[in-house]
Design a protein around this nucleic acid. Structure first.
Lengths: 230, 230
DNA sequence: TTGCAATTCAAACATCTGTATGAAACTATT
DNA sequence: AATAGTTTCATACAGATGTTTGAATTGCAA
């Protein structure tokens, strides 16, 4: 049973190195050196390098998904089984954004690892991500309950855009900081969550979406768009 | 000067293979086999593998950027130097979406290559992407002219979200199709552009954005949000 | 203690990879 | 035709990588 020691030393070292230097240039030899274990231990305990990466990613993903579903359930319980749309979206993007952004991000190896996983996308991780659809369906179901009238297609797009803004903010964190010369505060996670949720809700409730074919360069976006400014 | 023949054969073969199988498992030997040239030709003509990839990516990026700026200029000329915000965003996301989505996408090696580049993100490409900021600044400037009152921060976030939705739609095309069981039509590019632009405009004009600290689980998104349904 | 299974270890394996070399083939200018 | 410059080619190089092996060690039960 002392094998657990080696196993978790490998997991910890791998996560740390992948988080810091990316999947591209971290070798098994780097990992075992960091973990102070023998090279063969990785294959003995995990079978292969890919399975090690997969195990790392799966466990972190499950944690995030659990968090999401907990928040979703809490929101639904609050509303007697029917959570408001913004709470649902908050449960969807909150855990990821809170985990990967913020000032204490440097300290969290797990978060930095997940950012890497989101940026680099190696084969074993890609395979796992493809199974995430079932998890997302639960949010679609909740959204359906929150907006009974809406066409499903609109819900899919809304959820898709919410994830888009959330993930892209994590992925392109540095670029947004550089582009805005630091004026976009990437450390105020709560404000970012609010922003993403708010835009997503607008996407879901705002417009009757696309007129089948828009003119080449229409004057303004179509649909029932309410603009207070400008 | 018959060297151009070899050079472009390598470029074409590399783009095709990278597009089909990704950067991860395409070797120089695969490329020269596909191109029917000698192995040493790559280093002779490009210096290194990374420089080959870089050249491929740079030329495709420049093409996209040119297209974007052309559309932007056309829109600004239409409005006498001041394009409406939706036209600006359309110029930003249109070229990429049109290039990477749509039914004829299978035929376009260039498009498939750019999708790969967006998904896998190898070092030489990452380096280049970091220099894209200057290009984006031109769009920020145009947006500033279109919405003189707005705080710059809002513009940055608006542009950021527009790119987020656009790129994420390209990246996660398959997943959205699977999640929606085909109900989201990823082939109607025009409708997608309209959708992305419309949501981006809402993000830019919709709400006075974030109240500094939202309660843990607020009832509804803050700011001046107008909801017609539910 | 003995025996047995689980674990660790050093070393080797088997490729695969990008790159370099130096000779050969080609091209164009004189 | 001769030469100089460019391009192609076969081959070798050097190193890295994930994986395997078989012996040594450890831990625990009988």
């Amino acid at each position: 049973m002392s094998s657990d020691r080696t196993r978790s030393a490998i997991l910890a070292a791998a996560e740390r190195l992948y988080a810091d230097r990316g999947f591209g240039d971290v070798t098994l030899r780097d990992i075992v050196a960091e973990a102070n274990v023998n090279l063969a231990a990785v294959n003995y305990h995990f079978g292969s390098k890919d399975e090690l990466i997969a195990e790392l990613f799966v466990s972190r993903s499950l944690a995030t998904n659990r968090e999401r579903l907990n928040e979703l359930k809490a929101a639904e319980d609050d509303g007697g089984g029917r959570a408001p749309i913004d709470a649902i979206l908050r449960a969807l993007v909150g855990p990821t954004l809170r985990g990967c952004l913020g000032p204490d991000r440097e300290g969290s190896t797990a978060a930095r690892f997940m950012i890497r996983a989101s940026i680099e996308s190696v084969p074993p991780i890609r395979r796992i991500k493809n199974r995430e659809v079932d998890h997302l369906r639960k949010f679609i179901a909740a959204m359906r309950r929150a907006m009974p009238g809406r066409d499903d297609v609109e819900l899919y797009w809304g959820l898709h855009f919410a994830l888009a803004m959330s993930h892209h903010t994590i992925r392109e964190r540095e670029r947004l900081t550089k582009l805005s010369e630091g004026k976009c505060d990437l450390d105020d996670v709560q404000a970012i969550i609010d922003r993403v949720v708010s835009v997503s809700v607008m996407a879901l409730t705002g417009g009757e979406m696309p007129a089948k074919k828009a003119p080449a360069r229409p004057a303004m976006p179509q649909g029932r768009l309410t603009r207070q400014d400008l």
